[in-house]
Amino acid sequence: MAREVSKRRKAITTAAAGCVGFLMFFPILWIAILSLKSEGDAIRGPLEILSSNWTLESYGAVQERSNYLKHFTNSVAISFGSTFLGMLVAIPAAWAMAFVPGRRTKDVLMWMLSTKMLPPVGVLIPLYLIFRDTGLLDTRTGLVLVMMLINLPIMVWMLYTYFKEVPGEILEAARMDGATLRKELFYVLTPMALPGMASTVLLVIILAWNEAFWTLNLTAVKAAPLTAFIASYSSPEGLFYAKLSAASIVAIAPILLLGWISQKQLVRGLTFGAVK
């Protein structure tokens, strides 16, 4: 039972936590403000910036300058595509491991996890060469494949922990009630595991959207998603504060929303079920 806390103490904690929250969030807030300023205003002092005129011109300029929409669609295609493909492979695997555990199930799970521990740079060269020789370099298909593979262990793991929470007796009850394997999956398991699957999808989309090692190394222009596109602003001649801010806001806004929705499940996914 929680006890009543004095109003004063609550006010102090709220103020302290509010400061912490504000400071952590400030960089994001700041680029949101800069993105609504003209290029000339954006490099002035902070107070002058706040009092200057608001404008949406940077958002338009970003699109004109570099076909921003193309990179945005690339990001969407790569993260959603890889997640969708991955779920097709991960759902049956996680189902089987959760409900028909064998002697080696645990080993298989641990081994899958260990592939996630492989530092990407360790396989950078072979993958680069394979992609070069098969024409996958700078294609969405190639990145969809890579993203699916690097996130597959997380998908299997998360789904496994969710499926594990469906009581085995309920599935047995369905079997006793005459449900075939297909009907059991369709009428009982899927509806019960739907929330878990949804949060798995969300988390994996977030991870794929933000992935910045393979996207930077395996794309150039054609298939470059937002991570790689934003990186092009690092060259000094491309440096425009307002435009960089506008591009950044569009790049992070959708994922910020997804992240806030799935924050609870995030912990489980990122710790492979070690913390719930």
């Binding site: 009581p167 007796e169 309920i170 047995e172 009850a173 369905a174 006793m176 009630d177 009982v188 509806p191 019960m192």
Partner: peptide, 13 residues
């Protein structure tokens, strides 16, 4: 055969 389980195993949805 029909079975009644310890946890009742009702379909929650």
């Amino acid at each position: 055969l029909a079975m009644v389980f310890q946890s009742y195993a009702l379909y929650p949805h």
